[in-house]
Design a protein around this nucleic acid. Structure first.
Length: 547
RNA sequence: GGCCUUGUGGUCAAGCGGUUAAGACGGCGCCCUCUCACGGCGCAAUCCCGGGUUCGAUUCCCGGCAAGGUCACCA
């Protein structure tokens, strides 16, 4: 068969000499150990936790080694295109401190672009044409129905599904048949003529999994779709070669198509990049666990963390602990270090699927948040409220000084005795709500209404905002005694039957009256911040509210 | 079903021929304490199973089993 003529018929026109591409995209001039890695999302704009996983790994590897991280957009499937997706991706990643050196809409070195695969159609076609000329690729006229029928037949026979060997109908079409189909104007795709044999097992060194066994590919995969656009597999081979990627860190789900990629690189005569397949994030679902799913699990979406008001660094720290098992230990020793100083290693990446542990994330969040200064915390909360908060919550920040006092005095933020009450900005806002709004309701009161009213009246009678904490508390003790409550906790613990309760119960009544909540930071401090007028008003309100 | 990957406490995991089998989260208990939180101390809980190899296997080999992934003109 005259492959040259066939190639010309299939992909007419003059394409640049293949060597010219090598010259156009020369090997990068980088230090010896430098790694070139990439993120290659499809333009759906949806970046999820799994993506972030791979993203952090790729970013760390590139930048720790003095290499390059670039952004390529895999837009070969039109159905996946969403407007504004690239900006969304960049923003989402920037939030986690991941920035690109070059790539789509980055404005870095453009030597290795274009970064949108649709704009690279010529390169792909030039190489497809070459493969046809060599007899390594051929046109396939099978319809979707035929392929479905084939799959069903194979399934029924319990044979491997797919387009291969004797099932590859168009693989050995005669010249005559091909041209007849072409003359009839039948749509076609271009398939790779695979030379592989699945009974051959190849040893392969994966950067994260180590030594693995790969079965040779024998599928005549589609490399060019009927619209003239390559499939992912083919674009991957071309792009990662000419963009001079040295290491591809991607999700484990790609392991299954590794044989295809290996054959493609070989067929094209390209040096293979190194690959590292990272494990996927799992979620417990009843008895079993499964991959986190976009539809079922809101926590997969990065947007979820922004809305809840998770601190970006906390999410990053959590992912780092999953990514490199020795990170946690390192971080314990260097709690204030720049995360980028951690010696990240691909080889240390986890091999097995990890269950997403929200409790762990929460713990990390509390710790990260507790490290902030009051000013930083205020800025963080305000930024969150501006975007996701209620009008009332935004209003809290009108009095910046008061907010700062709330944060420093009550939350201990920036000080030695820091509290760790909340994991997110949204929780924090709810937590400090009572400083800015009067209680809408009171948590479960104990003791009789008459008793409570008496205690609150006594408080009002002796309340003096000039009192320091000691004096204030000693007054509470006096009230306790007067009402048959133990003034000293020791006395109460020794013989609870002698008292109605203790001074802690008196404090609780006053606390609920002031804040609506049974559990808050130091009450004296809270009343100081509220001021005399507001404190009296609230206690008064509580007295009349008690039927 | 074929192929591939993975299997250490509830979770993330260190260890990789001889260990009292680290640590962190969570759980439980105690202390501190006007509540909560913080902090401190402590407890319970693990090497998937069966064969080998070996003086000795969590560690090496083989075989099961289980879980996950994947089998598109989607990436």
């Amino acid at each position: 068969m005259d492959y040259k003529a066939l190639a010309e018929r299939l992909l007419p026109g003059n394409y640049p000499d293949l060597q010219s591409y090598e010259a156009k995209y020369p090997p990068r001039d980088l230090p010896e150990k430098a790694e070139v890695t990439r993120l290659a999302p499809s333009p759906t704009g949806f970046i999820h936790l799994g993506n972030l996983f791979a993203a952090i790994a790729n970013e760390r590897v590139a930048h720790r080694s003095g290499g390059i991280l670039y952004l390529r957009i895999e837009d070969t499937d039109l159905k996946r295109k969403v407007d504004g997706a690239v900006e969304a991706v960049k923003n989402a990643l920037h939030y986690f401190d991941i920035d690109f050196d070059e790539g789509a809409e980055i404005g870095g070195d453009e030597t290795y672009g274009p970064w949108y695969q649709r704009q690279r159609a010529e390169i792909y076609r030039a190489f497809v044409k070459h493969l046809i000329e060599e007899g390594r690729a051929y046109p396939c006229f099978c319809t979707e129905e035929e392929l479905t029928a084939l799959r069903e037949e194979q399934t029924a026979k319990k044979e491997t599904t797919g387009y291969y060997g004797k099932y590859a109908k168009c693989r050995d079409l005669s010249e005559e048949e091909i041209y007849r189909n072409l003359d009839e104007g039948k749509p076609f795709v271009i398939r790779l003529r695979s030379l592989g044999d699945p009974s051959n097992k190849i040893k392969f060194r994966d950067a994260v999994k180590g030594e693995i066994t790969v079965t040779e590919n024998d599928q005549d995969v589609v490399i060019l779709k009927s619209d003239g656009i390559p499939t992912y597999h083919f674009a991957h081979a071309i792009d990662d070669h000419f963009m001079r990627t040295t290491l591809v860190i991607r999700g484990e789900e790609w392991l299954a198509s590794l044989p295809i990629h290996l054959e493609l690189f070989d067929a094209l005569g390209f040096k293979r990049p190194r690959y590292g397949h990272n494990c996927s994030l799992m979620k417990q679902d009843g008895e079993t666990r499964r991959k986190l799913s976009k539809r079922k699990d809101p926590e997969l979406s990065l947007e979820f963390y922004r809305k809840e008001g998770y601190y970006a660094r906390a999410v990053k720290v959590y992912i780092l602990t999953l990514l490199n098992s020795n990170f946690e230990e390192w971080y314990l020793k260097n709690p204030d270090a720049d995360l980028n100083e951690f010696p990240f290693k691909v080889e240390k990446m986890s091999k097995s699927g990890t269950l997403f542990d929200l409790d762990k994330l929460k713990d990390i969040s509390k710790n990260e948040l507790s490290k902030l200064s009051a000013e930083e915390m205020l800025d963080f909360l305000k930024a969150w409220a501006d975007e996701y908060g209620t009008d009332a919550q935004r209003g809290y920040f009108a009095d910046r000084e008061k907010m700062l006092r709330v944060l420093t005095l009550c939350m201990g933020i920036g000080g030695k005795k820091r509290r760790k009450d909340f994991t997110t900005a949204s929780q924090a806002m709810q937590f400090i709500e009572y400083f800015f709004e009067r209680p809408a309701s009171y948590e479960d009161y104990r003791f009789g209404a008459e008793e409570r009213r008496g205690i609150l009246r006594d408080f009002l009678a002796c309340y003096d905002p000039a009192d320091d904490a000691q004096v204030w508390f000693s007054k509470l003790k006096q009230i306790a005694s007067a009402h048959g409550f133990a003034a000293e906790m020791k006395d109460y613990k020794a013989a609870p039957e002698n008292f109605k309760g203790s001074v802690s119960d008196v404090a609780e009544i006053l606390r609920i009256a002031t804040t609506g909540k049974a559990n808050t930071p130091d009450l004296w401090t809270i009343q100081q911040i509220l001021g005399e007028e507001e404190t009296r008003a609230r206690v008064g309100e509580a007295i009349s509210a008690q039927a």
